[in-house]
Each structure stands twice: as structure tokens, then as C-alpha cells.
Simulated assay, not measured.
Amino acid sequence: MKRKRIFIWLVVCLTVLVGGAGVYAYQVYSNVNQTLESVHQPVRREAIEVRPEPLELKQLDPVSIVLLGVDERQGDRGRSDSLMLVTVNPNENTTKLVSIPRDTYVTIEGKGRQDKVNHAYAFGGVPMTLNTLERFLGIPIDYYIEVNMQGFQEIVDAVGGVTVHNTFPFSYEGHSFAAGSIPLNGAQALAYARMRKEDPKGDFGRQERQRQVMEAVMKKGASFSSLTRYEEILQVIRQHVRTNLTAAEIYEMQKDYQQAAQSVEQIEITGEGKRIGGIWYYVVPEAVRQQLSNQLRKHLGLSIES
């Protein structure tokens, strides 16, 4: 797997066609900038973990980004269906990618109760989700990129569909997926990325398929054939993506941080399923949580907690 595309998806999914600006020159550049301005949505919150000094991208400070795949529902704000954390250290040219199981048992910051981590979004949106993750992981969360699952489907269609390699046959939501190399349209890709109950690896298997589809989207989006579809792609991004990254920050990271994407370590959080009060949770032992926190803090250039 070309792992560097995972990082590119996170920080350049908003600018998937920037690489083609040399072909369409000013028109593409102008439209991309307008898109970035429209999806920019700052977060007002009090950070739980404070950096010793403010983050400076131009000084190549290590950075953390959370990708939220949100399953929006009519009448409420929905839940975070997918949670991924990326830490990037441009000085070491390394990237760490942590998939966070949505059923992880955590303390929901601002609620004073323990619950599944994906419920933080339902209770308090992006601010409560970021604060909850900061407390659980013991690190500052610098940026977020939110993509609703309807947008996930439309982005796949906008790039003309994708091809993935499926490791075992299964059916889900009316779609059948054979083993081997298979083409997917948007609806198929969404179902492919959502299934977990038939996967021997459970939620971790689903997370792998989500990353696989994201990688395929970036590969297709970066191809020359997608340049003719860039207006459709940007329209989908405007409708379905939100981030607190500014256009200047995205360009800065694309310029100075993408080399770190050539060395990606994928981390799975070790835990076990338990029923608490009749509800199934994914429980992470404190020793495992602390070890993960120290690993991420070290990667971000922060002091290690005992």
C-alpha cells in the first residue's frame, strides 16, 4: 500500500486537484481557494492539553490532525462513524496513524460521564469530540477535518469511482463484494467501508477498508483523468467537508510536511469488548492508554508523562 496517500488524504483532500493547477493554472487555483474559504470552520473551545508554546507550522512544529467521518441523521447532528488521528513530525519525516474504535469507553469531556467515544459528537459536536480525545490520548489536538458519510459517497462518484482489493467475499446493505480487485461506485464504496459484523477483525477490519477507499480516492483524484471533473469534486467538498485548517495552513503543510508521509506507522489501540450496564464497549486498559499517550507525545515533541 502506498501509505503516503493516507496523510495526503487528511491534509489535501480539500485540495485534491491542486497538483493539476499547472494545467488549468489560475482557474483551478482560484476555485480551490474559494472552496477552502467556504469549508473553513474554526472551533471555539478551551483546549485541555496546552502546548508549551503556540504551534508554528513555518517552524516545522509536529502537528496532530483528527479525521471525523460523521454519520449525520435527520433531526440530530449524528455520530462520528469513523475516528482517525494523525500525528506528523516533519523533522523526523515520520507520520503515525491511529484508528480509534468508535465504541471505545472514554470519559466524555463536558458531560461528566463515561460513554462510547463516538457519542461525544452527538452530545457536543466537534468541540466536545476534540476535548474528549485530548483527555483520552493526553495530547493536544491541533486540527480536524470533518467529512459526512454522504460526502464520502459523493466524493467517490465525483472522481469516477475507485478500485480496491477485497480480501474476502461478503454482502452488506444490498451490495455483494467478491474477493479480489473490484470496482466501486459511491454507494458501493460506502457500504464496503461500513461493514464490520462479518469481518473477523471487527471494527479494525472496517477501519482498514475505510483507509483503503480513502487511498483509492486520492490515487484516482490525483490522476490526470480527474482534472476534467475538478469542478464536481470541489462542489462535493464544499457541501460535505469542514475543517479549522485555513488555506494558508493547508498549502504550508502540503509544501513542508508531506515528505513525512513517506514513513507511516499505523497503530491499533489494544483493548477488549465488554458489556457494562448491558451495553457493549471497547475497553482500553490504562497501561495501554498511557503507553499510547507517551508514544504520541514523544512524536509531537512533548514531554513524556509518568
Score class of each variant (00 low, 15 high):
Ser303Gln: 13
Phe204Val: 14
Glu37Phe: 06
Arg45Tyr: 01
Pro52Val: 02
Gln262Ile: 06
Gln41Met: 13
Val126Asn: 00
Ser303Trp: 00
Arg135Glu: 15
Phe136Ala: 01
Val164Met: 10
Tyr29Asn: 12
Leu133Trp: 04
Gly22Ile: 10
Val32Cys: 09
Leu245Asn: 05
His119Lys: 11
Gly69Gln: 03
His119Cys: 04
Val16Ile: 14
Gly110Asp: 02
Glu272Ser: 15
Glu46Pro: 07
Lys274Gln: 09
Gly180Asp: 13
Gln207Ser: 07
Asp115Tyr: 09
Gly124Thr: 14
Phe224Leu: 15
Gly180Gln: 06
Ile304Thr: 11
Ile267Lys: 08
Pro285Val: 03
Asn166Met: 06
Pro127Leu: 14
Asp61Thr: 04
Met84Arg: 04
Ser64Thr: 07
Leu97Asp: 10
Tyr230Pro: 03
Tyr251Lys: 04
Tyr26Met: 12
Ala222His: 11
Pro183Thr: 13
Val39Thr: 00
Ile65Tyr: 07
Tyr172Ser: 10
Asp199Leu: 00
Met84Ala: 00
Leu234Met: 09
Lys201Gly: 07
Leu60Cys: 09
Tyr281His: 08
Tyr172Leu: 09
Arg206Ser: 01
Asp81Arg: 08
Val106Phe: 09
Leu292Met: 08
Val217Glu: 07
Asn31Glu: 15
Gln258Pro: 08
Ser226Gly: 07
Met149Ala: 03
Trp280Leu: 11
Ser225Ile: 12
Pro183Cys: 11
Glu232Trp: 11
Gln74Arg: 11
Val236Gly: 01
Ala21Asn: 12
Phe177Trp: 10
Tyr257Ser: 04
Ser303Phe: 03
Gly221His: 03
Ser99Ala: 05
Asn294Cys: 08
Arg211Val: 00
Ile269Gly: 04
Gly19Thr: 00
Phe177Gly: 03
Gln153Ile: 06
Thr132Lys: 05
Trp9Phe: 15
His299Cys: 02
Asn33Pro: 04
Ser82Thr: 06
Glu92Ala: 12
Thr15Asn: 01
Leu130Met: 15
Asp203Arg: 03
Thr104Val: 02
Glu46Ser: 14
Ser38Ala: 14
Lys201Arg: 15
Val23Gly: 12
Asn31Asp: 14
Gln258Gly: 02
Gly69Ile: 02
Lys220Arg: 12
Asp103Val: 02
